[in-house]
Design a protein around this nucleic acid. Structure first.
Length: 426
RNA sequence: GGAAGAGUGGCAGAGCUGGUUUAAUGCACCGGUCUUGAAAACCGGCGUGGGUAACACCACCGGGGGUUCGAAUCCCUCCUCUUCCGCCA
């Protein structure tokens, strides 16, 4: 959520930024409405405060009168306060509805993109920031897509997943299961080496948490919901891990806060279809190691670069060709100011698969979460939050299988062998 | 799941027979005096948000709602914690 002060003081910058997102012009008009509604909020609040002040004063006068036995005077004063109460009720209601509509409006405004973000509508306008591992390794004749490899070597069963639960819930078996576990441990170890503190969070969160990181209200339909207890299954570790710092005021010396966590991720993926959902490409449950970083505002873009380096290192150790995209305005997530997507080349499918998304939210998320720190002058200011996948398992497994296949089986990258305990799947 | 008790400012801890306490006091923390320096002592400051040029002022005593002229204090409800019982990895 943007701060109203930002909209007030830097409206030009906000408008310019939102234009890069290719948003509807009504959204730009909303900015003015927000400011005028906020003015109304202030004046209504002031009126209400004055009424409350009067009523407070009278109430304590009544107390004094009772004490000194002047019951009659007290009673007449009571009548006066009762009259005030109608006004107070009225202004309280007015204020509440103003605040609600103000909130509704603010929730519609996405983050302002960073100056480096190119304008654009969608994926076709993203900028290739870096390529690695090209030209692509040539696959042998008769190379198979990962879902066929999975079946051939009996390491992943989509069919059994359907039987147990439904589509999008694969079952990993034997070396497939072992490969999953190896990747999780590899990613967690690499994150630990890079100074991220490992967290094992709950896999369900309450509404407050889902709201704070921005899943609610906009992405409600994407989450599995446990009605009886009012919990949501997490769509990413970002939600519980970031929420550790909800409603927290830090000291400057507490930074940097670097966290990592492995969790399964649950996504309903309503409306997805076609080749998109084939095999491991898009699942309802997948494993992911997430890194979350909170820091001072003036560090956050250095931090973003450091996070990129970390993810690059992982992909290179897994010997997977990848590219990094700087997302254009239209493709950048609602909460993000700057996002880099990592895509690995799925050789057999001949398409790119997104395996990581690294973003700087600046104060957008912190504002909603109330994550702040004390500045030197004693003022509380919003911190910056960032996060990224490091990495998302299922698609990594997909490209790993496809890219490292040989006529006799699948070769495990050297860096992973200590974790799998085998170097070949056949 | 059942029963009882409890949730107060960074921590500890009063207040809880409703009105000079609209949050005492102690510790911690920050500034000052004193000191060669430090400690001690003393003086002052010391929560969050709204609001103001700055004050004033307003809101917040687990969350939400209610009673009352007035609620940390009474009532309802939810959440959490502790203890006991039940169940159980």
């Amino acid at each position: 959520m943007l701060e109203i002060s930002t909209i007030r003081e830097h409206k030009d910058r906000v408008v310019e930024g939102l234009k890069k997102r290719n948003v509807d012009t009504t959204l730009l008009e909303l900015l003015d409405t927000i400011v005028t509604t906020d003015d109304l909020r202030k004046s209504t609040q002031t009126t209400l405060d004055n009424l409350l002040s009067q009523s407070n004063k009278m109430a304590s006068e009544i107390g004094q009168l009772f004490k000194s036995g002047k019951t009659q005077e007290a009673d007449t004063l009571k009548g006066k306060v009762t009259e005030l109460k109608d006004d107070i009720k009225e202004y309280e209601n007015k204020l509440r509805s103003i605040k609600e509509s103000l909130d509704d409006m603010l929730l519609q405004i996405p983050n302002v993109p960073h100056s480096s973000v190119p304008a654009g509508k969608g994926a076709e306008d993203n900028e290739v920031y870096k390529n690695w591992g090209q030209p692509f390794p040539q696959l042998m004749d008769g190379a198979l897509p990962h879902w066929e490899l999975a079946e051939k070597y009996n390491i992943i069963s989509f069919k059994d997943g359907v039987k147990l639960t439904g589509s999008g819930f694969p079952v990993y078996k034997g070396k497939g299961a072992r490969l999953q576990r190896a990747l999780i441990n590899f990613f967690l170890d690499e994150a630990s080496k890079a100074g991220f503190n490992e967290i094992q969070p709950p896999l369900m969160v309450n509404k407050d948490s889902a709201r704070a990181t921005g899943q609610l209200p906009d992405k409600e339909g994407q989450m599995y919901y446990v009605e009886k207890d009012d919990f949501y299954l997490i769509p990413t570790a970002e939600v519980p891990v970031t929420n550790l710092y909800r409603d927290v005021i830090l000291q400057k010396s507490d930074f940097p806060i670097k966290l990592t966590g492995y969790t399964p991720c649950f996504r309903r993926e309503a409306g997805s279809y076609g080749s998109d959902v084939k095999g491991l490409n898009r699942l309802h449950q997948f494993d992911k190691v997430e890194i979350v970083w909170m820091d001072l505002p003036d560090h956050s873009y250095d931090v973003l670069m450091e996070m990129l380096k970390h993810v690059e290192g992982l992909l290179e150790k897994l010997e997977l060709p990848y590219r990094i995209l700087r997302l254009c305005g239209g493709d950048t997530g609602f909460n993000s100011a700057l996002t880099f997507d990592f895509e690995t080349w799925s050789a057999a499918q001949e398409r790119w698969l997104e395996v990581s998304s690294v973003s700087n939210f600046e104060t957008f998320q912190a504002n909603r979460m109330h994550l702040r720190f004390k500045d030197e002058d004693g003022k509380t200011r919003l911190a910056h939050t960032l996060n990224g996948s490091a990495l998302a398992l299922a698609r990594i497994v997909a490209t790993l299988l496809e890219n490292h296949q040989t006529p006799s089986g699948i070769k495990i990258p050297k860096a992973l062998v200590p974790y799998t305990g085998f170097d070949f799947i056949n």
